[in-house]
Design a protein around this nucleic acid. Sequence first.
DNA 1: ATAGGTCAAGCGAGG
DNA 2: CCTCGCTTGACCTAT
Length: 307
Amino acid sequence: MTNLGYACINMTLGKKRILTGRAMRKATLEEKGLAHASELALQNVLDLETILKWNVDNGIYFFRLGSDIIPWGDKIDITQLPDYDAICASLKRSGEFAAEHGIRITTHPGPFNLLASPREEVIQSTINHLEMHGTIFDLMGLSRSHYNKINIHVGATYGDKYSAAETWCSNFLRLSEGVRSRLTVENDDKASMYSVRDLYELVHSKTGVPIVFDYHHHTFCDGGMSEAEALELAISTWGNIKPVTHYSESKSLHESNDKLNPRAHSDYITNYIDTHGFDVDVMIEAKAKELALLEYRQLHKISFEKR
DNA sequence: ATAGGTCAAGCGAGG
DNA sequence: CCTCGCTTGACCTAT
């Protein structure tokens, strides 16, 4: 049975200032120090508990956690945060709650995470950022498997798609077990970059890293495959873990404005998500977040269990 | 209180 | 050369 999920932000709770994305600028961090980062992080993790409960109350069992939950968590020593113990305790409660109710939690670090970069400082900050996510998932007690994926793109070719992919694979080996066991790659949304086929041949076959199939991106970079073919190939990389796909619609599909970038996501989604008969979980990437998920479920009369 | 500018991170596409 | 888009708005300052 397909679980539908949404990403990072709950609009309904956000209106009440319940969110996991309290962030701070570098200047503020330098001015106010770890104490303020700690306050924000604690509030973020406490609100995560509220959001997960809201999700269960609304029959949603799939959620993406954002990267700001511990502001600057990749640049600071989080064990030094004044509220470190309380933060850990809260994360642990969230993880236990997720286990109890069968909530799948994943994350998708940003487009700045580039393991193929020719610049060592970019690779190092990517590693630091991914390790932060691995640590947070460990603190939550989430599985070290692709069930709780940490998903990124290869994201750049530096003029040579093949050598960049090789660089990516060799830097993959520099990651800890807690990250390697969870890392997945997603097909890119530019023709010059990595299709599902590219990822299969250049990344998965070398490292075993599973492929997240993104429907929308596939329309920009199909590698000569149909949607069904690419989806099936991506699914074949997941072993015994239920695969994840990403679904979004172009803003230009919903608004008649020629100036819109076709890559921009719409607020809501309306088309039926065709999983081509496969049992997968679908992460809905729409600007209206959980509201888009609820609307979609109503529109297509999709039933969901309460657990 | 709100609007508008700015931001921690890298790259490629399009104008 | 500048802006947008991406995982995502939230923060900050001036009105």
